[in-house]
Computed example of a mutant assay.
Amino acid sequence: MTVLSVPVALDERPLPRRVGLVTLATDHTTEVDFSALPAHGVGVYATRIPFANPVTPETLAAMARDVTAAAALILPDEELDAVVYSCTSASVVIGDQAVRDAIRLGKPSAEPITPISAGFAALRALEAGRITLLTPYTPRTTQPMAECFEAGGFVLQGVSCLNLTDDREMARISHATIVEAARAALAPGSQALFVACTAVRAAAIIDRIEDALGVPVVSANSATLWAAARACGISGPVAPGQLMRLA
């Protein structure tokens, strides 16, 4: 074996900006939805957090103890621009501020992002105060989310759910079903529709849902993707939808 004496030059980073994802062990969707970012000079680096179905307030709350360690595990001792905790319902059950505080403990310099904090910011940016909430969950898991949106200052014109308990099945909901469920859920007077759950594959077809409904649509992943892109200084669209086209 020969040890070469060639001088090794090191670049600063393979990509100039970096986003970390804390995804559920069972997540099929988030990394796919975030795959658009590297084309914009943003690296996406994911870790998994333990989770066991069914999706209930109890199983969601159990993830609280692992958030900090999961965030710290992403490129240890290196800085990230943002860290996304990719679970809408757990952000509600654990508490949105508590989740973001836990991320900060693991990655102090990164902007902590959740589907709730990003979703609220997205709806406000769209000037949508009256909304319809659509979830794939059971009524028992949906109710705390509805209360969270109302506490955040939004008027819920309607709340609908699909009564599923397994997030792996939520990731298999067909695009046609998502569009039809959105059409059926949208309540009169709504200024936007919010589609909860990072497992649901709505982000890639936001424009298709918006065409069917005639109002802006924000999904859990489109909101966090938008927030992460803005945290990295990207102002242009990185995915479909009216939200992405905001200046």
Rank of each mutant, 00 (worst) to 15 (best):
M1T: 04
S5Y: 03
V6F: 08
V6Q: 15
R18E: 13
L24A: 06
D27K: 02
V32A: 07
F34Y: 12
A36I: 13
T47H: 09
T47I: 06
R48G: 08
R48V: 03
P54M: 08
T56L: 03
A70E: 13
P76Q: 06
A82L: 01
V83Q: 07
S86Y: 00
S89F: 01
V93T: 04
D96S: 14
A98E: 06
R100Y: 00
R100G: 00
R104Y: 00
P108F: 15
E111H: 00
E111S: 00
T114S: 13
A118Q: 12
G119W: 03
G119S: 05
R124H: 05
A128I: 13
A128Y: 09
G129M: 00
R130N: 01
L133F: 10
P136T: 09
T141R: 04
T141L: 10
A151G: 02
G152Y: 10
L156W: 08
V159P: 04
S160T: 08
S160K: 14
T165W: 14
H175R: 13
H175A: 12
A176Y: 01
T177Q: 08
A182L: 09
V195M: 10
C197F: 09
T198Y: 00
A202D: 02
A203D: 06
E210R: 02
A220R: 14
S222V: 08
L225W: 05
A227Y: 02
A229M: 07
V238K: 01
L243C: 10
L246Y: 14
